[in-house]
Design a binder for these strands. Sequence first.
DNA 1: CGTGACATTGACCTAGCTCAAAGGCTGTGG
DNA 2: CCACAGCCTTTGAGCTAGGTCAATGTCACG
Lengths: 243, 243
Amino acid sequence: MTAIIPIAEHNVRELTPCKLCPTQKACLAQQATPVQQQCLADNLRVVSPLHAGVFLYRAGTQVQGQYHIRSGMVKTFVTTTAGEECVTGFYIAGETLNSGRCLGVHSESAVALETASLCRLDTQAIEHLGNQGLSVVMLEKQAEQARYEVMHQVNLRQTSAEKRFAGYCMQYGMRRARLGLDDTVLPTPMRRTDLASYLGMKLESLSRVISRLQSRGLIAARRDQITLLQAEELAELAGHLRY
Amino acid sequence: MTAIIPIAEHNVRELTPCKLCPTQKACLAQQATPVQQQCLADNLRVVSPLHAGVFLYRAGTQVQGQYHIRSGMVKTFVTTTAGEECVTGFYIAGETLNSGRCLGVHSESAVALETASLCRLDTQAIEHLGNQGLSVVMLEKQAEQARYEVMHQVNLRQTSAEKRFAGYCMQYGMRRARLGLDDTVLPTPMRRTDLASYLGMKLESLSRVISRLQSRGLIAARRDQITLLQAEELAELAGHLRY
DNA sequence: CGTGACATTGACCTAGCTCAAAGGCTGTGG
DNA sequence: CCACAGCCTTTGAGCTAGGTCAATGTCACG
């Protein structure tokens, strides 16, 4: 299902100008002083675009640094002893994979769901930046990611599958809004199975939930895109936290 | 249910010697150079013991720093729009609350479940330590906490309540083992309702699960303590990740 | 010893899991 | 350019785990 291409094949080339990056609002550089920005520019590397199905890293391999997504979507997952994938996250432009992690081995695997481009910040660079006064910024970036996970964790506890799905739509929309993107049209490059795994239900249940919400006019669903038609009602359905 | 005592009342006094601290193995200081240790000692403050039901901080209040637990147990939770508590974590000695967070407001509330003593590391101190070469250590500490949360998140996705409970026992046991404590006797100061919330089930379901596992001889349960009698079988039940 | 909070057990019912079949896309090869 | 194959998705029909409501049991504390 997913192509197996060693990470070593990803080329690293000169940093393309940050000014052109669509994720500026969410970038570390935003909160850095000019000196720190230069330091970042010296340490960031742009990874050659990953095509759908290509692994960014695999669970159990040595951590090389963290990855800032410029475009595309990447999913992370762990593999159970029974051998099945358990999807732990979907990351979009402006978000950071393996945030703040610099030692040890990866506990998750990361794979592109559609063509994705990323910046890499390696371990030594992270260490260096910490000493340049960017540690608080990096801790905050990591903390933001942690907050998303708590939100998802809380959402997972909803007993109804419909509520969990609605919660996911709200959270995803909110994350898109942060980037200045349309928060009612949600690109959905992942398979239904992946989304179901992420939401703690079986794909049949997810399919039924989507059909039901669509027939009630709350959403419009295509294979690769979900449009929120009645965001307020969905929010009320999800209704457990402010997003 | 929970006493309302303003945080301001918590006294801060001189650091008691770290040599006497039971959580040394899990402390930041362990990985620090002598100079950094001095820096830590200068910045750490011991909070006067919190009694059961006392809040360490509340969601929405300004973040003051992070807290390292020396003894006792603290639970964190968010409150839904419907006004009910949703328990997001139980923290034991050697673990860090609000890890790496230094800006903004708390997204969760934290309350002691039994008498707890803690060290506080405030915002400025975190910033200062970052510049002293401790940023990687702090990022790693935060990352470790994040890993626990992913484990829990994965556990929450288990469809069977029995498996979720078994997974919790394994994870809790593992965390105790890290501290050199007995990993088969699990102190359980929290209410059943809290534990059920944490595990994404109703308290009746939790109660039934506990009764069932007890009658099968896998555990022995008391109100405030769960003893694992057949850890291997429980691990197999939970059986989705290596702990 | 009594009271109230917490925990357990029971009975019932519904949401979602399981198994199964049919429908739709997508990509490949003729 | 079309046809076919394989995969993904949807829909259907039971069945069961766990949610809900209610009653009973137990413990801690005054």
